[in-house]
Simulated assay, not measured.
Amino acid sequence: MTTHHTHSDLHSEQGALPGEHRGRVASPVIKVRDLAWLEFEKPDLDGAEVFGHAFGFATSFRGADELHLRGALAGTPAVVIRRGARSRFVGPAFLAADDVDLVRLGDHLGVRVQPLPDPLGGLTVDTLDPSGARVRVVSSCHQLPALPVQTPLVHNVNGGTTRTNATQRPAREPATVERLGHVVLQTTRYRQALDWYLEKLGLIVSDFLYYDGQRAKGPTMSFIRCDRGREPADHHTLAMTLGPRTRYVHSAYQVADLDALAAGGEFLKDAGYKRSWGIGRHIQGSQIFDYWRDDKGFLVEHFTDGDMFDDTLEPGWAPMTASGLAQWGPPATPDFLGIKPGRESLAELRSILANVTRSDNEFDLTRLRGLLKVANS
């Protein structure tokens, strides 16, 4: 008798059908504990730092050609930005449980364990996933001490009175980022990349999405969490979706509560930054969300109140639709969906024309029809 069960009663259409992807493997090489940080290159570190502070990060390191932005909780920096000729996402760094796991992974991949630069400390195994994306797995990094966090507001709810003779006045200030939550990546080799992360890093799937009418062809998006046994982990640390090119989609950072998120959004708007989509509550993951564009156009998310799952939950399955991205909130915007006229949508269109008939990726004409249906749903 298994202790695993689906979470169709929580937010998914149903569990897997016979023969569908299980969303985990029995004996992965290692099981990573978390997402440590994300690495970017940008030509303007000053602009990156200004936006970072407006978004709610603190600076933990600043050199001539490198910037580290951190959340308030103890741990590693959340974002590492190095000076580069153009703005690009370099890749994620995942946290191994210990050095022994790092050595085991390095031996399995045939990759040497290397020391990280002093501002980060610790060790890394650097490799590529099947999409060609750079992936780091790290251990024993320097631990930054905790900083002050925002205190969630006290609410008068359910007929109770917990706040008397006191008003609610959340300050219009940056929403203090507490920690990095997840990153979403698009790939032309979704199934190969998914299996790689499950087999090599021990991640497990919380939810699968599939194109409407194409379930028999398999999923096209997965929300993937760390397997910590009975210790709950974020609903997704990594999300992956099939698309016409391999690229960064967005990353998400936890804040204290809805008021911190909303007031922080007002601060960003007053500072001249552009909201992409929000405020709303997601279905997969349940987070209250608010999406913004940073100084170079990267999509970043404030979130609060996300789901936490242990290892007993099997994946949920649901069709992918634009309207199914949120329980409540405004409709998903063209900017968020990547169809707003501009540089990114043109790059996506060029990739569709270049890749849809190639045999070395999974994004074919049938999948293109499914994606177009999502955009119009």
Rank of each mutant, 00 (worst) to 15 (best):
M1W: 12
T2E: 11
H5L: 11
S8P: 00
L10H: 11
E13H: 10
E13A: 11
Q14Y: 12
A16K: 11
S27I: 13
I30P: 02
E39W: 00
F40S: 03
E41M: 10
D44F: 05
D44S: 05
L45Y: 01
L45K: 08
L45G: 10
L45P: 09
D46P: 00
F51Y: 13
A58W: 02
S60Y: 01
R62D: 02
A64R: 04
D65R: 11
E66R: 07
L69Y: 02
L73D: 11
G75L: 03
P77S: 02
G84A: 03
A85W: 00
V90R: 01
G91I: 03
P92D: 06
P92K: 02
A96T: 02
D99L: 09
D99Q: 04
V100R: 08
D107W: 01
R112C: 08
Q114P: 01
Q114M: 15
D118Q: 10
L120E: 02
G121S: 08
G122D: 03
G122A: 08
G122N: 04
G122S: 06
L123T: 07
P130K: 02
V135K: 03
S140N: 13
H142W: 14
Q143H: 12
P145D: 05
Q150C: 07
P152D: 15
P152N: 13
H155N: 09
N156D: 15
N158T: 11
G159K: 04
T161S: 13
N165A: 15
R169W: 09
A171Y: 07
R172H: 05
E173N: 09
A175S: 06
E178S: 07
L180R: 06
V183G: 08
L185M: 12
T188I: 01
T188A: 10
Y190N: 01
D195E: 09
W196K: 12
W196G: 12
K200S: 05
I204L: 06
V205I: 05
S206Q: 03
S206M: 03
Y211T: 02
Y211M: 07
Q214S: 03
G218W: 08
M221E: 08
D227C: 06
D227Q: 06
G229H: 02
G229L: 04
E231Y: 00
A233E: 08
A233M: 05
D234W: 09
D234N: 13
H235S: 13
A239P: 03
R247C: 08
V249K: 05
V249A: 09
H250Q: 12
S251C: 12
A252T: 15
A256N: 13
D259V: 01
A263I: 06
E266S: 14
L268S: 10
Y273H: 13
K274A: 14
R275P: 08
I279H: 12
G280I: 06
I288L: 14
I288P: 00
Y291Q: 07
D294C: 06
K296M: 05
G297I: 11
G297L: 04
F298L: 15
V300Q: 15
H302T: 01
D305P: 01
M308H: 11
F309P: 00
F309W: 04
F309I: 05
F309C: 02
L313S: 14
W317S: 08
A318V: 01
A322Q: 13
Q327P: 00
W328D: 05
T333H: 08
L337H: 11
P341H: 09
G342K: 13
G342V: 12
E344H: 14
S345K: 07
E348R: 07
N355C: 11
N355S: 10
R358C: 14
S359E: 09
D360Q: 04
D364G: 12
K373T: 03
V374C: 00
A375Q: 14
